[in-house]
Design a protein around this nucleic acid. Sequence first.
DNA 1: TGCTTTTAGGACTCAAAAGTCCTATATTAT
DNA 2: ATAATATAGGACTTTTGAGTCCTAAAAGCA
Lengths: 198, 198
Amino acid sequence: MTARRLQILDAAAELLGEKGYARTSVDDIIERAGLSGKSHFYHYFKSKEELGYEVIGRQFDLMADRGATVLRDESLAPLDRLAGFIDSVVALQAENGGKGGSPFGTLSAEMADKDERFRLRIAQVFRGWSAQIQALLDEAHDQLTDDADPQRLARFIVATLEGATQMARLKRDPTVLSGIALDLKRFISTNQRRTETA
Amino acid sequence: MTARRLQILDAAAELLGEKGYARTSVDDIIERAGLSGKSHFYHYFKSKEELGYEVIGRQFDLMADRGATVLRDESLAPLDRLAGFIDSVVALQAENGGKGGSPFGTLSAEMADKDERFRLRIAQVFRGWSAQIQALLDEAHDQLTDDADPQRLARFIVATLEGATQMARLKRDPTVLSGIALDLKRFISTNQRRTETA
DNA sequence: TGCTTTTAGGACTCAAAAGTCCTATATTAT
DNA sequence: ATAATATAGGACTTTTGAGTCCTAAAAGCA
């Protein structure tokens, strides 16, 4: 029923990740999705903009799922989960070989200014990640130093990962990302109090 | 002689910062720059692409200057200069009220995939910043712990600032940036050895 | 003053890309 | 079987935006 719709959504997600929103034409999407005739596309989506909006939403769910899997793995201690999450971001980037990366980084920067609706949606994604990380840090509260503010720290982690992803794309060098991830984990550990460990 | 040219360049820098490259038309630039007639524009620039390339170059010089002023202020200790630099990035963002921000964040994400030439230019800008910070960290080498790798650290700082700037834009909330800047400075201080201070 | 070059402007061409119309083939239900 | 509906496709219209052509007014120079 909606198989074709999903096909279009997938094709669009790929293309938007590769080339960005503005430089991806509806015809490109149609070709990649393997359908011909533009009205066919417009049968499923009201407009290109509507499609973009949906792609972002889906990407959000995808990334959130991916994050949640690691961040809520009850078998690990909170801070180990966080380290695992950071590693998974590095791995994801490496998978895509830098090119494309998370279809998120590019999109967010490009579309946020285009439309208030887009901006809010993207901000919501960021908020979702920060919130998950923050919850985790709250959970690990007694293992953290007193001056470690979970909300601020969570934002810091998200911002650093985002910036690092973008930098890695730009340099076409995945080792950049892993280097930054290393320092990020080091930073987190400096917010741990020594006492509890021993 | 080139007054008009500069006028166009300035107008373009503004617009590209606000709306990005793809969504800024040559006509927009012409209007903002206060000239009429497209050929007039093409008298000064070979193409829109050429203009974009120049704007990036100029923005680089601008940011580099701004950075260099703080980062090479001999009257301050290296690590204090670094803190000052971070503060100046926060201040710059606050000035522009989030909107627009450095015309750099948006541009880099959008244009990097457009053209290899753009990508390299932008990567060069990032490299420039990292290099300046790295030089500073090298200078402060004896005040740093042994496991602090200047190059890696410099990249970390640049990536975090870039990610933070983007996040602040997205949330339209400058306090996000200052919070992250605070943690960033805290992080840097954890790479300082205690001994020298006393 | 007359000649050349720079600066300026309007009207146009051309290409790309968003979106519509109208027709055809499956699919399903009665 | 047939009417109704979902799926598919091609050809068209319209808009937008990059880039060109051709003319006019200043500004320097002889």
